[in-house]
């Protein structure tokens, strides 16, 4: 694929957003970054360009415009903030891939706020009925993007979604930033994926993994 894809990252200055933005800026993609505080986005853009002057990355002042121009939209937002943004991008996200990376954690990180028969990704799909929602990167910690190999093993990113072409596209993105994409199945698999993130967070706090940890499926 040589035609550059444009990826809008909404919520680009958070830990996850900036981690993904920095990784993706090294790939053959054009990035449009949006976050609430424009000055923070601008300094992130400067930061990325300092390390890689060839990176095509730009700060955007409006999430709707960023998403309108994008081929792929990545929401790097807390679960609670997705509803408001979804309303703003709904029309321009029509038919586009929208990547859901959020985990609907409660305040103490001890459980999920969603009921067991749904997930953050499925909620987002309801809010954006004509978009192709794909769950990905939610089981990966922010620090992992800078180093996708732990203990000599490449971190897996589990992926879920209903549209085969979109799953291929997101898998290719994951591969491009050094992760091993593993498609779990259709979007309801997000429930398991979000619980896996919760478990990884719990284990990390319990055993002091220092927020460098990931899932790896070992197989023959």
């Amino acid at each position: 694929m040589s035609t550059k894809q444009t990826i809008a990252i909404i919520g680009a200055t958070g830990n996850m957003g900036s981690g993904i933005a920095k990784s993706l800026s090294k790939t053959n993609n054009r990035l449009l970054l949006f976050a609430q505080h424009t000055d923070k986005v601008k300094s992130l853009v400067e930061d990325i360009k300092k390390g890689n002057p060839a990176a095509e990355v730009e700060a955007m002042e409006c999430p709707t415009n960023a998403s309108w121009e994008a081929d792929i939209i990545l929401l790097a937002l807390p679960y609670a903030a997705e509803k408001e943004i979804a309303a703003k991008i709904k029309e321009v996200a029509n038919q586009k891939i929208v990547i859901s990376i959020s985990n609907p954690l409660n305040e103490t990180y001890s459980g999920l706020v969603t009921s067991p028969d749904t997930s953050a990704a499925e909620h987002l799909q309801q809010l954006l009925p004509n978009s192709k929602v794909v769950k990905a990167f939610n089981t990966v910690f922010a620090a992992d993007f800078a180093n996708t190999i732990i203990d000599g093993k490449q971190i897996d990113t589990l992926i879920a979604g209903n549209d085969a072409q979109s799953l291929d596209t997101v898998s290719a993105l994951a591969k491009a930033i050094g992760l091993n994409p593993l498609v779990a199945g259709e979007l309801p698999w997000s429930r398991t994926l979000e619980n896996m993130a919760l478990l990884l967070i719990q284990l990390t706090m319990k055993y002091n993994y220092n927020w460098v940890a990931g899932w790896k499926v070992l197989h023959n």
Binding site: N65, W68, E69, E91, V92, N94, Q95, N130
Partner: peptide
């Protein structure tokens, strides 16, 4: 409309 993708492209972009 459900099937259409709105997309902006800037001058000189492919």
């Amino acid at each position: 409309k459900q099937y259409l993708t709105p997309k902006k492209l800037r001058r000189k972009q492919y």
